[in-house]
């Protein structure tokens, strides 16, 4: 565990906490894409099946449980909690997210490190995570008023991806045989998707203005 990896995980954790804070405390999910949250729930459910087969550390297992639990509870909150559900921007959140799932599955069947059930699902989760933020970014662009918590949530998620890239660079130079092209390329693609958002986020921060994305 290096400092970039730890900082990345903590940023990821912070993003989930910010979102849960918004939903649980303010009872609002305005500006939050249910499509993206559903995709994340699938990502974690398919990636963390190895909880049952391999043990790395208490930290590793605990974090997996936290990400699984939080992603599913966010989806359930948004779908079934009366007050939270009422604040959902259903008309704006129209990205056809199920169309992302099948290509990712096919790609995982074609390009993977090992052809085993768990490995293909793990690879599928990497591909799907890379594009899972798209419905959220589209929704942000359509939402006139982006509140601070939603902006911070996406900012922290993007930050987590950026820190993971630093972690891979660090590991590549410090650990022999640490080469994972599939993880790196899908991680890079995912981080690049945030580039535009980061630009406008930093602009609004610099000018001390509310975050607004151009349509």
């Amino acid at each position: 565990m290096n400092i970039f990896r730890l900082a990345g995980d903590m940023t990821h954790l912070a993003s989930v906490l910010v979102l849960l804070l918004k939903i649980h405390t303010i009872k609002s999910c305005a500006g939050v894409s249910l499509k993206t949250q559903e995709l994340y729930a699938i990502v974690f459910a398919t990636r963390y099946l190895d909880i049952f087969t391999s043990f790395y550390s208490i930290y590793n297992t605990l974090m997996k449980l936290v990400f699984l639990g939080s992603s599913f509870s966010i989806v359930l909150y948004m779908k079934y909690h009366k007050t939270v559900h009422r604040s959902y921007d259903r008309e704006q959140d129209t990205f056809r997210h199920w169309f992302l799932v099948l290509p990712c599955l096919l790609l995982a069947l074609l390009i993977h490190e090992k052809f085993t059930f768990l490995e293909v699902l793990w690879t599928f989760s990497l591909y799907l995570e890379a594009v899972a933020i798209l419905p959220q970014l589209v929704l942000l662009q359509r939402t006139r008023n982006i509140d601070n918590l939603t902006g911070q949530y996406v900012f922290l998620l993007g930050g987590y991806r950026g820190l993971y890239i630093l972690n891979w660079i660090y590991r590549y130079f410090t650990e022999p045989h640490f080469v994972h092209w599939i993880t790196w390329i899908s991680g890079l693609v995912q981080t690049l998707l945030y580039a535009d958002f980061f630009f406008y986020y930093s602009q609004s921060w610099k000018n001390n203005k509310k975050l607004q994305l151009p349509a």
Partner: peptide, 10 residues
């Protein structure tokens, strides 16, 4: 890498 360290990331 060996299998044990394969998926130690989240």
């Amino acid at each position: 890498g060996d299998v044990a360290s394969q998926h130690d990331e989240l």
